[in-house]
Design a protein around this nucleic acid. Sequence first.
DNA 1: CAATTCCATAGACCGCAGTCTATAATCTAT
DNA 2: ATAGATTATAGACTGCGGTCTATGGAATTG
Lengths: 196, 196
Amino acid sequence: MTSRQEKATATKQRILRTALALFSEKGFDRVSVDEIVRKSATSKGAFYGHFTTKYDIFLEKFKEIDQFYRDFQDSLPEDLPAEQKIRKLATVQMAYLRDELGRDGIRALYAYALTPSVDNYLSDTERPLYTILEQMVSEGQAHGELSPSVSSGRLALLLSRSMRGTLYDWAIFDGDFDLTGEIDGWLELLFSGIRK
Amino acid sequence: MTSRQEKATATKQRILRTALALFSEKGFDRVSVDEIVRKSATSKGAFYGHFTTKYDIFLEKFKEIDQFYRDFQDSLPEDLPAEQKIRKLATVQMAYLRDELGRDGIRALYAYALTPSVDNYLSDTERPLYTILEQMVSEGQAHGELSPSVSSGRLALLLSRSMRGTLYDWAIFDGDFDLTGEIDGWLELLFSGIRK
DNA sequence: CAATTCCATAGACCGCAGTCTATAATCTAT
DNA sequence: ATAGATTATAGACTGCGGTCTATGGAATTG
């Protein structure tokens, strides 16, 4: 690595760290790029040389979640029924997002995903979340625990949609909203069905 | 009404009509307030005197949907099973939103609802959508068609969350996405449950 | 080592949503 | 009718995310 590259990555790290510190201190949309640039003693040019948007920085953090999913999968007992695996994944995920990103973070992320012509992370079906979910579902189907009426891929997608829906509601509803309780109650219904 | 008030409402109508025309022509976020103001021969002052935000204008249109829900309810045969009423409501709603607001419109609306400290329309549980859904659910429960394990209010909320989740996904996933098909397939699963 | 190319960074600049202030037209009170 | 209060509107202005251009110092080439 040449000295120029070294300086560049140092700059990038300084911006990243400053930005994440400010985000967690004041909340994503109460921090401006100008402030990040000022506090990290860099410039707009440097900022946008290293990151494509302000949200991009935020995604760096969000992507840690992928590692979290993988760790979670490894820690899970093999022989658990699929339903319990899925429900556990969902509640643990919600707790993680609540504590790591917070309502503001989720708001920012979900708003950014709605920006037209941005290939957003949420809809990337290559994410570990999808593959892990799909694996759990197809195991469950193979063992006769889960309905085989829809494909595992589709069911995984619908489960992830449930999570997005719940997180979205958490973001837009003020007041009390117990994220882990909501997703668990929700999955309970989805597993048993609401028809009597 | 004094002549001053008459002029004011005329201005408001001019802005509203101009804005809605531009939105449907170019899409919500390709129209600036400056352009609306220019094309309607008014001013920023007039605009923000009559509307609190650019999205506010958009809500005017969205609120027509309330009337749509009421009309729909009136047109529905009394004796239909609750499940069918709910599924019909969901598919008809999706078709309406798809055709009247479009992906761009939904994107704008859902992004706006995420703005902090805005009491957004989506989370207003007084909306006709909620009351109609709740009515259908409690009818279904009374007739022994639907599970009584959760209250009608809560089940109505969860059904509306399903709709939001589906609409959100429609907004963020590019490419083909059959909104009415998605919601119906989804409700099918929710009614019967995914456990085997 | 000199000449040339390259590229990370600085910061002026743009278009946007939304705010603030001044003003002119209308309304009210006497 | 006139003085004074009110208010709808015009448009300059702010703060924001993001773009564009210029530049100085490091890399490359001979």
